[in-house]
Simulated scan of single mutants.
Amino acid sequence: MERRTFLRGAVVGASAAAFGGTLMHGAAYAAPAQNGPSPYGSLLAADANGIQLPTGFTSRVIARSGQVVPGTSYTWHSAPDGGASFADGTGWIYTSNSEINPGGGASAVRFNSSGNVTGAYRILSNTRQNCAGGRTPWNTWLSCEEVSLGYVYETDPYGVNAAVRRDAMGKFKHEAAAADPVRQVIYLTEDETNGCFYRFIPNTWGNLSAGTLQVLKAGTATSGSFTWGTVPDPDGSPTVTRDQVSGAKRFNGGEGCHYANDTVWFTTKGDNRVWQVDLANSTYELAYDDSLVSPGTAPLTGVDNVTGSTFGDLYVAEDGGNMEICIITPDDIVAPFLRVTGQSGSEITGPSFSPDGTRLYFSSQRGTTGSSTGGITYEVTGPFRT
């Protein structure tokens, strides 16, 4: 297939990372990725936490479902899922959804400048199966309900303001969200076998109370051009949002979503693909497809949540597979970055880097028990490329 490249924009200032994307530099981004050596080398034997990491990296457990977060009085939620990190003075905050129904919601953990946990607290309660979501440039966490006619909730990672339901962003089986400060829109994935890829255009950037929901329109090919069509009835009743616009492109199980420098990437678990959308030129193609990988066996299966580093590497978490987070580099190499052992009944969720890019947070949703009450949230520290 044609391997068109995406020229990645130059760094335009340190503030760009706070505006929904990650600063990226280097050469062109082409697609789809192929097997190759990881820039961090091969994985070592599992550490005391059962995690295989490259040389120079270490892991620690931050929280366990049903147990008090060490250093706090807060009990961590079950089934930890999507998450994001936020600057907090000289420290930072990591938010995490709870994918249970009913109950759901989201929590946050606060760290000081040394990385010590200084607090943990609830930021959203009494919702349904909160799966993924996304951070906004104005430092809120969008927590998405992965249920039919589900909502997006805008939450405060700092624990000051009450969460607000954002009805205008549509009622459907929400998964992830990614903010695009250039076009002033929020991209949204839908976890249906015949789901769509959406964007929400707020009437006022920074205020998600009102706006227009649109869906990506394209042909059935894995690459080509696209347009946007407005969803007439975002509340999804009596006709679901994905069936309201003629020519809407179908995606098999939309999952994670990440924006940086005029490009948005999102994953589809039903066909183990990572899609790459060139927003400047209104074209799309595959960044990864497990059926197109060579040589050898595809390392990344069960594609799920995705995030990006300051260097421009994508980190894609597996739902199942062999419990890896795999890296896709700017020069189109895909390789394992870490592997969680002894937890085959779980999935990896919520990958997110600390604001300085030196720590990676993620969860094993069901941990060693295979139950939602067995979730474990981790931190990995090491010489990440920046």
Rank of each mutant, 00 (worst) to 15 (best):
G115Y: 00
C326S: 15
H77T: 12
L43D: 05
W76H: 15
L360A: 08
Q365E: 14
G134L: 05
V12T: 13
G150M: 08
T349V: 06
G236D: 12
N161A: 15
E255A: 03
V303P: 00
S42F: 01
A298D: 09
N322M: 10
R8A: 10
R250Y: 07
S371N: 14
E192A: 11
L213V: 07
T127H: 06
V109W: 10
R135T: 06
V12K: 09
G342K: 05
S291W: 02
Y158L: 06
L360W: 03
G211C: 04
D81N: 13
C131S: 08
D167Q: 13
D332T: 13
T193C: 03
R339N: 11
V160K: 14
S363C: 15
G236A: 15
D180Y: 04
T263C: 13
S143I: 05
V117H: 02
P181K: 09
N139S: 15
T297S: 15
A63F: 07
G105W: 07
G133H: 03
G382P: 00
T341C: 09
V264G: 08
Q184N: 08
P137I: 10
V117Q: 02
I325P: 01
A87C: 02
K249M: 13
V240C: 00
Q343W: 00
S372W: 11
T220A: 15
V61E: 13
Y378D: 11
G21T: 08
A260G: 09
G56A: 01
A248P: 03
N272A: 14
I325T: 03
K249G: 07
F384Q: 04
N203F: 06
L142E: 11
R366F: 12
V274N: 02
S344P: 00
S148H: 06
S78M: 11
G104Y: 02
T263G: 07
N252M: 07
R8C: 07
S85E: 12
P232N: 12
P299H: 12
A280L: 15
P80G: 13
T155S: 15
G374I: 10
T230N: 05
A162D: 14
V380H: 00
T212Y: 09
